[in-house]
Computed example of a mutant assay.
Amino acid sequence: MMLPVSELHDFPGHPFQVRDDEEMEKLAESITQHGVLMPGLVRPRTAGGYEIVAGHRRKFASVKAGIREMPVIVRDMDDDTAVILMVDSNVQRENVLPSEKARAYKMKLDAIKRKAGRPSKENSAGIRQNLFSIQKIADDAGEGKTKIQQYIKINDLIPELLEMVDGNEIKFNPAYELAFLRLEEQAVLYDILQAEEVTPSLSQAQRLKRASQEGRLSEQDIATIMREEKAQTRDTGKVTLPAKEIEQFFPKSYTPEQKKKIIVKLLANWARQRGAQER
Rank of each mutant, 00 (worst) to 15 (best):
Q273S: 12
H56Q: 15
Q273R: 14
V264D: 14
E163K: 14
K238V: 15
K59I: 06
R274N: 12
D20F: 11
I112C: 02
G167Y: 09
E169H: 12
I170G: 04
R43I: 08
G49W: 01
S133V: 13
V188P: 00
I148K: 08
D235G: 04
E23M: 07
G144T: 12
D21P: 05
Q258E: 15
L202G: 00
P4V: 07
P4T: 04
R103G: 01
D140R: 10
A211S: 11
L131W: 03
P174D: 02
D140S: 12
M70Q: 10
G142H: 08
Q194Y: 04
H56Y: 04
L3Y: 06
P98H: 04
V74M: 02
P4G: 03
Q220E: 15
M38Y: 08
N168D: 13
T81C: 05
L241C: 05
F249P: 04
K259H: 02
E100A: 09
R210H: 10
P44R: 06
F250M: 09
G66A: 06
Y105C: 03
M38A: 12
S203N: 13
E184V: 08
K115R: 15
K209M: 13
L208Q: 01
V83N: 05
V63G: 00
V198I: 14
T240K: 14
I192Q: 07
V87M: 08
M77A: 11
R75A: 14
Y190N: 13
G117S: 07
I112T: 03
Q258G: 05
A179C: 07
E245I: 12
A271M: 12
L202I: 12
Q220Y: 09
L266A: 14
Q273C: 01
Q213Y: 02
K121I: 11
E228A: 12
F11W: 06
T81W: 04
L131P: 00
V18D: 07
R43P: 03
A47F: 01
Q92N: 12
L241I: 15
K244L: 11
I152Y: 08
E184P: 00
I52H: 07
P4Q: 06
F249G: 01
E160N: 12
L208H: 01
A179Y: 03
S212I: 02
A65W: 07
Y190F: 15
E245P: 00
A138Y: 02
E219Q: 13
V42G: 05
E122V: 12
Q33Y: 00
K209H: 11
Q204C: 03
A205S: 14
M86F: 02
D20K: 10
Q17L: 14
Y151M: 09
V87K: 05
G66V: 06
L37W: 01
V239E: 11
F172Q: 06
I263A: 09
P256M: 09
K259N: 03
K26I: 11
T233K: 15
I127Q: 15
M24Q: 15
D21N: 15
L183P: 00
K101W: 03
M107H: 07
L8F: 07
L183V: 09
F250C: 06
